[in-house]
Design a protein around this nucleic acid. Structure first.
Length: 559
RNA sequence: UGGGGCGUCGACAAACGGCAAGUCAGGAGAUUUUGGAUCUCCCAUGUGGAGGUUCGAAUCCUCCCGCCCCAGCCA
């Protein structure tokens, strides 16, 4: 069989060409450079798969580097979660865990060098003044009055900046480039700002911190990164990236930009994700409705499925919106092969099998996974009183409804054919609360000797043997493919029904000792994952994703 | 009114001057002890538009149109 070839994207093409031309001695070295100011999400997964994936494919290396140049926003909690998530996704940075803050001293020396070259200067303009002097998109900026200070004065001032002689915001170090450039990033960008703030790694050693544009290219250069892959919004920054490295005449990695991931029915910006958490729209960063890696993990998504998804969506430069159904497809594909099947009744309807002997219990054999016979079989207890799914009975069924109805015979999976012979209703509400059925003893195991057909097979749980469980059903967090597209505020499109909690579900006894993180298929319903909230004798399940549901589609078209 | 990018099916995405891949979604059927899974078939005479070059254009050229990003001492 021919192995399906992996998609070759424009980045891999560039790298292949570079290797051919012996650029960087045919070495490939990438990096994943998160800022530790939030949790990783599925969009980061795309970048992680790209950077680590390329390193693997080209027999190169990929570093994990924290871009920690802003002590005000960054926290140790985030670096720990990021490490865990990258590892969980299946990637290994080995001994190459770095921090931009590791290079602060070197960056300082390079900055001094730029000053000596007359390429950087200390500027006394306030933030507002800098903005004023910068001009606009359509109007060139004008030179700062401090632009032509002598090298000696600049050096002296820069040293005193470091010593902490000046308050926050009073001065900056700026690159001397071109205030009339069409590219605003080149209008004497700030390289260092004064921040008397404790850094999670360097403590109080520094009170000046480098800006991204300056820090990133130097970090890449120091680490010998060959291909510095980032998202499209940094395309405008590439001339600056190149400028610093050219002026300094140091090792010069190549920056390549690709389009970030957008997913329908979800938001993927840190700002909005943090808002969802802080304002309590979700229960935390790892809420199973969140597109964070920790949320997806708790939801039951497997790392391999996420990797398959990231590979399939490809890498390109055009803005795109990936249909979340594609993600769900890969989740199902993965779980279909691996998840053991069990029976669980989410909305129980009591069924008494009136011709089945009282007190009799049978152990029926059930297949754990029809996709993988190696997963074996198990025994499921059957008795006179069982629960079936409320939705599996209709007193007055529409034409395409194949399931149980008055007088109709259906199969109970791995058990017997049953026929509905009576309905018990709540006197006040008229709601169906119990069914009376008869069973055909000759259909034990679910096959009838006379080959007569039934149109439906129902899952069930024996009432006296069932275990009570809580099940949390999740739907998309937002009701619109692009949240906030119409109103301008993504929160107006929050889905009020994104979480439904069912407290008294009945699951089969083999689930008694399920462990948090275990994944199952509840037959005919979906894939479910045991939540860490589970307590002894009261498991909690998260619905990872539903099964494809043809009936739901029919029912919808009926309305 | 400046600079940088991008337009191929409902959604992703290949093609690199020579027959518009593939995946998801959607539709039809087969099969089925999960209305699951699996299998088969259908789904762009056409690549934002108009011209041009060429035996031949999604691909090269010209003009036009549309969309995204940039005016943090954030990354």
């Amino acid at each position: 069989m021919v192995e399906p070839s992996k998609p070759v994207d424009f980045i891999r093409e560039i790298i292949t060409e570079d290797i051919k031309n012996n650029k960087y001695e045919s070495r490939v070295h990438t990096r994943f450079p998160p800022e530790p100011n939030g949790y990783l999400h599925i969009g980061h997964a795309k970048s992680i798969c790209l950077n680590f994936g390329i390193a693997n494919e080209f027999k190169g290396l990929c570093n994990l580097r924290f871009d920690d140049t802003n002590p005000i926003k960054e926290e140790i909690e985030y670096v720990e979660s990021i490490k865990e998530d990258v590892r969980w996704l299946g990637f290994d940075w080995e001994d190459r865990l770095f921090y931009a803050s590791d290079y602060f001293e070197q960056m300082y020396r390079y900055a001094a060098q730029l000053i000596k070259m007359g390429k950087a200067y200390v500027c006394d303009l306030s933030a507002d003044e800098i903005r004023e002097y910068r001009g606009t998109l359509y109007k060139p900026g004008k030179d700062s009055p401090y632009r032509n200070r002598s090298v000696e004065e600049n050096l002296d001032l820069f040293e005193r900046l470091r010593k902490g002689e000046f308050p926050d915001g009073s001065r900056t170090l700026r690159a001397k480039i071109d205030m009339s450039s069409g590219n605003i990033n080149m209008r004497d960008p700030v390289m260092y700002r004064i921040l008397h703030s404790e850094h999670h790694r360097t403590g109080n050693k520094w009170c000046i911190y480098p800006m991204y544009d300056y820090a990133h290219c130097i970090s890449d250069s120091i680490e010998g990164i060959t291909h510095s892959i980032c998202t499209l919004e940094f395309e405008d920054h590439r001339p600056l990236y190149d400028w610093f490295l050219d002026q300094l005449n140091v090792f010069h990695p190549q920056q390549i930009e690709f389009a970030r991931l957008n997913l329908s029915y979800t938001v993927l910006s840190k700002r909005r994700l943090i808002q969802l958490v802080q304002e309590g729209h979700v229960r935390g960063w790892d809420d199973p409705r969140m597109p964070t890696i920790s949320g997806l993990r708790r939801r039951g998504y497997a790392p391999g499925a996420i990797r398959n998804f990231c590979e399939r969506i490809g890498v390109a430069k055009r803005d795109s919106l990936v249909d979340i159904e594609l993600l769900e497809y890969y989740i199902r594909e993965d779980l279909n092969k691996r998840a053991p099947r069990v029976m669980a009744v989410l909305r129980p309807l009591k069924v008494v099998i009136i011709n089945y002997p009282e007190n009799q219990v049978e152990e029926l054999e059930a297949i754990n996974n029809p996709e993988d016979p190696g997963m074996g079989t198990r025994k499921v207890p059957f008795s006179r009183v069982i629960y079936i799914e409320h939705d599996d009975f209709r007193e007055d069924p529409p034409k395409q409804f194949f399931r149980l109805a008055p007088g109709r015979e259906v199969r109970l999976r791995y058990a017997y054919y049953i026929t509905c012979v009576g309905i018990v209703k709540d006197e006040k509400t008229g709601e169906v609360v119990e069914l009376h059925c008869t069973y055909d003893p000759k259909t034990r195991g679910g096959d009838s000797p006379d080959r007569r057909k039934v149109k439906a097979t129902l899952h069930w749980v024996s009432a006296p043997h069932s275990i009570e469980a809580e099940v949390r059903l999740y739907a998309h967090l937002f009701t619109k493919p692009i949240p906030g597209e119409e109103s301008g505020d993504f929160k107006t499109d929050l889905n009020p029904k994104s979480l439904e909690i069912l407290k008294s579900c009945c699951v089969e006894p083999c689930l008694a000792d399920a462990k948090p993180g275990d994944r199952y298929q509840f037959e005919r319903q979906g894939y479910f994952c045991v939540d860490p909230d589970s307590i002894d004798k009261k498991p909690v399940f998260n619905r990872t994703v539903t099964l494809k549901d043809t009936w739901a589609k029919i029912e919808k078209s009926l309305k």
